[in-house]
Design a binder for these strands. Structure first.
Length: 415
RNA sequence: GGACGGGUGGUCGAGUGGUUAAAGGCAGCGGACUGUAAAUCCGCCCUCGCAAGAGUACGUAGGUUCGAAUCCUACCCCGUCCA
């Protein structure tokens, strides 16, 4: 392991955030001498970020933790154009209003990971629409376009791949890398930003920005990428039954978020603890040595720490407690589970309840679940398709637990 | 603008007049084994219906036919090549 002068690079390296760097030594030097301002770009197509963005968010967090200044750059300008790589779907152009709402919502996520404010080390958020929207074509071409050669642009993997496969590459897409490079230079001009980070797939784009800075203004800019985070089984991280693992509570409950981390594969536990929690390395070292059933303890800690960062300690504790009751306590119904309420005295059809709760997408699916023995009411398999929930199923508080499969649980309650 | 190729279920991809709710793969879901893991095996996987069955569905809208994802027409969209 190389020896670093700066806390920033030492921490990044120890925790497994570093994949490639344009100039590790000089960046180390710079970070050891003063405050470095660094940024990562994020899409503004949805009102929440998801776990796939978390590696980047954590990099910004580490940057701030080690005494530097993070910028979250929102791609409001590029979002307006739309990602042209989508296939058959006609891309919907997003309205300014929508984009602004998304950005505001996403900011709520960042505030959990970064300290915002006006101080020298406080994080802030900018939108590249601020400068991309008003670009003049000719001045831009002369100022920026002149520094890019087509010869070189054609050598980029993203471009080469399309050409090799004889798939179309629009002029718009072709310009994307220039835009991104320009963002970097603009951020330097406005805020003295000298570092761009991102996933390893962004390497080419990042290098472009670094080079553009040098050519236009003889700037010394740096690029740093994280390894693409995949699970030990090779899958891209962040997909579950319900789709994307969103970071916003409104999109995915704390309990489900906690469960996502709880279900990490054994082989990933140590790596994820380093990347996605603030736990000291010594403790992680101890946790990742656990084997067999014991490693479940490490997974719970991972789940708790990750949820604490995203949703706060209180939500994390509630989620952990719910999980404990549901999986270990047998009887109880945690407060965090989805709940179905019905008037006392009525006997709702189980099938309907399952659909309403979202445990199954349709009545047909609910029935299949029952036929396969996957649906349980208070841990007893529901047998008939016409089963109802009656007074005798409810406990003293008027509640019963409904489970689909081994991991998905909900509460039904008479009110 | 011209020539050609194409649009099939969450996705990839078979299917070129009836035996097609549509092969197969992937993803997903349930079960077994376990540790709320991985791997493996079994089952499921459009909607409604207890069921028999019915309704939708192969880009969109019409048409031919006893019968269409399959043939015809128009339109929309995507791609390749040429201007």
């Amino acid at each position: 392991m190389p020896h670093f002068k700066s806390d920033f690079l030492r921490v990044m390296h120890e925790r497994g955030h570093v994949h490639q760097c344009t100039d590790l030594e000089s960046l180390d030097e710079k970070a050891s001498k003063g405050i470095v301002t660094g940024y990562i770009g994020f899409d503004a197509t949805a009102d929440s970020l998801h776990v796939g963005n978390l590696a980047g968010i954590m990099m910004l967090r580490r940057l701030q933790q080690t005494g530097h200044r993070p910028i979250a750059l929102m791609g409001g300008g590029t979002t307006k154009v739309g990602d042209p790589s989508g296939k058959t779907e006609t891309r919907q152009l997003m309205s300014d209003v929508q984009i602004a709402a998304n950005i505001a919502s996403i900011k709520g996520i960042f505030t959990n990971y970064l300290t915002f404010g006006g101080g020298a080390k406080d994080a802030f958020m900018v939108n590249n629409a601020d400068w991309l929207d008003t670009l003049g074509y000719i001045p831009f071409l002369r100022e920026v376009g002149a520094h890019f050669t087509i010869n070189r642009m054609l050598t980029f993997d993203s471009v080469k791949m399309r050409l090799d496969r004889e798939q179309p590459l629009t002029f718009l897409e072709f310009n994307y890398m220039i835009m991104q490079g320009y963002d970097f230079v603009e951020l330097h001009k406005r805020y003295g930003c000298a570092l761009q980070m991102g996933g390893s797939d962004q390497w080419g784009n990042i290098v472009n920005g670094v080079e553009l800075g040098r050519r236009m203004k003889d700037l010394e800019l740096f690029g740093l990428t994280t390894p693409l985070i995949t699970t030990a089984s090779g899958a891209k991280m962040g997909k579950t039954a319900a789709g994307a693992v969103w970071l916003k509570k409104e999109r995915l409950s704390s309990y489900d978020y906690w469960q996502f981390w709880r279900n990490t594969e054994d082989a990933d536990v140590g790596r994820f603890l380093k990347l996605f929690t603030d736990l000291p390395l010594e403790e992680i070292g101890r946790l990742e040595k656990l084997r067999d059933a014991e490693i479940n303890e490490a997974k719970k800690i991972l789940a708790f720490e990750a949820t604490k960062l995203a949703h706060g300690a209180e939500a994390a504790e509630a989620a952990a407690e719910t999980a404990r009751q549901v999986f270990e306590g047998g009887e109880g119904q945690g407060g965090d589970l989805p709940t179905y309420e019905f008037p006392r005295g009525t006997t709702p059809l189980v099938v309907d309840v399952v659909v309403t709760l979202g445990l199954a997408a349709s009545r047909g699916e609910a029935k299949r679940l029952i036929e396969q023995g996957g649906l349980r009411l208070n841990d007893a398999a529901v047998t008939g398709l016409t089963a109802t929930i009656g007074e005798s199923d409810l406990d003293a508080s008027g509640a019963a637990r409904l489970s689909a499969g081994k991991k998905r649980h909900a509460v039904v309650r008479a009110v």
